[in-house]
Simulated assay, not measured.
Amino acid sequence: MLIPLLMFALVSSFTPGPNNIISMTQAQKYGYRAVLKFIGGVAAGCFVIMLLSGYFNFALNQWIPRVKIALDLLGSLYLLYLAVKIMRSKPQQNEDLARGMNSFWFGFFFQFINPKVILYGFTAISSFVIPVADSRIQLIMFSLLLTAVGISANLTWALSGRLLQSFLDRHERAFNIAMGLLLIYSAVSIFAN
């Protein structure tokens, strides 16, 4: 189960999502080092989400199929909202918004409303971890692994934002539209699973 879990985690983590896009734009605007506060908060919040997903999956295993459609719908609607905000934003709006996002606490608390991380946790834990994990230690280890993969994606997106800064500055409008379309794709793909 480890190889399928890692494949799922890599694909889920490296595709566009709110954390990756914020990491990239933060690094583009303020530098790679500055975004590490946000990514640290993301790591802490993501780890908590993974643990909560594990405990909820153990406790609510019979209810998850019944509420999955509602969770999928809410997550998709939130991603569509973010996509529209990104595609309609103007450079000054982006800078004002970005300043407020560059903190550990924003990164931490954002995970609790980030549908991609919540769905990532519930799906990974219920599909790959619950069938093989039978102790709290295993749940903690799998949660750390899932968090590490997710954070490696955020760091990669931040690095690409920093390295591509001049390109992104010149083509910000087109880039925002492309990122918005990728978020729309993410929202639609939730129902393909």
Rank of each mutant, 00 (worst) to 15 (best):
S13N: 07
V67Q: 01
A192V: 14
S89W: 08
K29P: 00
F128M: 06
I21R: 03
G54T: 09
Y30G: 06
L155R: 04
P4R: 06
I49H: 07
Y30N: 13
F104D: 00
L97E: 03
G180W: 09
P115W: 07
G161Y: 08
S160H: 04
T25L: 12
D96Y: 11
G100N: 08
F104C: 00
M179K: 12
L5I: 08
A133W: 13
Y32N: 06
I64H: 07
N94E: 11
Q165Y: 08
S152Q: 10
S127F: 06
L159R: 03
G150N: 12
I190W: 07
I151F: 03
A98P: 00
T25I: 12
V84Y: 09
A174W: 07
M179W: 08
Q111S: 01
A59T: 14
G75I: 14
G100T: 05
V117M: 04
P91A: 07
G45P: 04
M7W: 11
I69Y: 07
V117C: 00
L36E: 02
F109P: 00
E172F: 11
L183I: 11
N61A: 15
M24N: 01
I21L: 09
S53M: 08
L139E: 01
D96A: 11
N102A: 04
V42G: 00
V188K: 11
A174L: 13
P18H: 07
Y30P: 04
S143P: 06
Q62M: 14
G17A: 03
Q92I: 13
M1G: 11
I39D: 02
W157E: 05
A174N: 12
S76W: 09
D96N: 14
L146M: 15
F191P: 04
M141R: 15
A158M: 05
L2H: 10
E95G: 00
F191Q: 11
F128G: 03
I22T: 14
I137G: 09
G75L: 09
S135D: 12
I130Q: 11
A43H: 03
N61E: 15
M24H: 02
L51V: 12
Q28V: 10
G45T: 00
Q165D: 14
S143Q: 02
V35K: 10
I39C: 03
L144W: 08
G17E: 03
C46W: 11
L119A: 09
V67L: 04
P4W: 10
C46V: 10
F142K: 13
A158Y: 02
L182V: 05
I39Y: 03
L97I: 07
N154C: 15
G54P: 02
L79C: 01
I177Y: 12
D134W: 10
F108H: 01
Q138E: 15
N154R: 05
R99E: 06
V48L: 13
T123S: 06
I3R: 10
L80D: 01
G54M: 10
V117G: 04
L73R: 06
L10C: 08
T15H: 06
Q111C: 00
I21W: 05
G31P: 08
A133Y: 13
M141C: 14
I125P: 04
K85W: 02
L163Y: 10
A9H: 05
N176S: 14
I22P: 04
W105E: 00
V11W: 09
G31L: 08
F14K: 08
N102P: 00
N102T: 06
L183M: 14
R88Y: 04
I151K: 05
A124D: 04
I184H: 09
V11I: 13
I113N: 01
I137S: 13
Q62R: 14
V48Y: 03
I137W: 15
A124E: 03
